[in-house]
Design a protein around this nucleic acid. Structure first.
Lengths: 231, 231
DNA sequence: GTCTATACACAGATAGAC
DNA sequence: GTCTATCTGTGTATAGAC
């Protein structure tokens, strides 16, 4: 699987994803018509990402957002009750999407190395496709309420555990090296994170996400896979 | 070299470091007595780190800072001309310190692998010793002016180039694998960054910086060093 | 150098017409 | 559902006494 394949597969499930997100937030969202809501939320999210990429969420004013979305202050406040709630909504959406997509790429019957490869690639490709969400999720975590913060940590722990379990399984099956798999999993996550935190760097250097994935997988394989010449 | 050795060596040069930082900023700092200035700047910096770790620099108010430092608003403004300038000063201090320390750990006569090990460890140990600076430097970069932002990028590129050159040299000497060394260097940086961005995670899991360094170096060695069993 | 008290700008949020 | 106009709190920064 390369990035192009991943995008094709994602596009097919896009509509049902937006529908789910709308339904999940029915209690918060006051807008009646689903079509209008989805359309304007997309506009609002895009604007938030554009503005906060430059100066952060705190520094973004509601007037900035009004200008960028072409919606008045009044109109904006029909879509959320406070700036803080807007932040929460965005974070939630992001988590829903990420979880859904990653789970749809789990392949329980493959070999440990194949599983590891698939999971790492799926994460990288998703972060490429949804850069703003990933970047925002990371950078603006500190502005969240305690409960929302915990939800982020839980979702971090969740993806780390997926890696961890694959590593454990691989060791038991004798194909992976023994080692501190929790630490290994964390470092793999760090390599994935680099991609969306420093996206601009790789754009400038003409490194594609497929190139990057290959390099990360190179690191992982040479460290994790049991080899003849190695102790 | 382990972390304890590193700390010992750092402590010896600490005083001269503060002196240099004060002298470097003579034009900005209005306080006459060096001793008073250094003492209060330390107090201010610590407070800034404590507050912004929780909620970010933008969200920190001058009243927060006044409360935390036990200095009045008026007194604070004797140490900098605006909140923005405070940010700039902190960033500058950090860069000065980091550059000075890393350069003092360069070892031109060692073998490529030894050099790589030393550089990676020095960076990790320094980020452990000066966590708040590293964390702050990364998280608050977007609030800076264009020129200051460029200075950060330059210092990023600088440390990456150090890694790159060691990798190139090692390949030429036949001890390292061929490969895209620029990409490898970036990923090594990402692994270093993980340590100070997610410090709390490792505290909770009882992973020491020495443990972490060993794991990172494991990844690096198995990926970079030329081995018998490998193509 | 440090304090208290205050100026003044601008943020988030709402009311009420359309 | 969307607009314009406006309220009110809070933020940065300074003036002037000690």
């Amino acid at each position: 699987m390369n990035y192009a394949d991943f995008v094709r597969r994602f596009d097919e499930s896009k509509e049902s994803l937006f529908h789910q997100i709308y339904q999940d937030n029915r209690d918060i969202i006051k807008i009646k018509k689903e079509a209008t809501a989805i359309k304007n939320f997309e506009k609002i999210f895009d604007a938030v990402f554009r503005i906060t990429y430059e100066k952060g969420f705190q520094a973004m004013t509601m007037r900035d957002l009004s200008r960028e979305t072409q919606l008045s202050m009044g109109a904006l406040y029909a879509y959320f009750q406070s700036k803080d709630e807007l932040l929460t909504i965005i974070q939630r959406q992001g988590r829903t999407m990420i979880k859904r997509v990653l789970e749809s790429h789990c392949t329980p019957k493959d070999s440990p190395l194949k599983k590891l490869t698939t999971v790492v690639k799926a994460h990288l490709f998703l972060s490429e496709l949804a850069k703003p969400w990933f970047y925002f999720n990371f950078m603006e975590a500190k502005n969240l309420s305690d409960t929302e913060r915990e939800a982020i940590l839980a979702s971090e722990a969740y993806t780390e555990t997926i890696l961890f379990e694959i590593l454990e399984d691989g060791e038991q099956k004798g194909v992976f090296q023994a080692g501190n798999h929790m630490l290994t999993a964390s470092i793999i996550k760090a390599m994935q994170q680099e991609w969306y935190l420093k996206r601009w760097k790789y754009t400038r250097r003409n490194v594609s996400v497929d190139d990057y994935a290959a390099c990360v997988l190179g690191f992982i394989e040479s460290y994790c896979v049991k080899q003849e010449g190695k102790l």
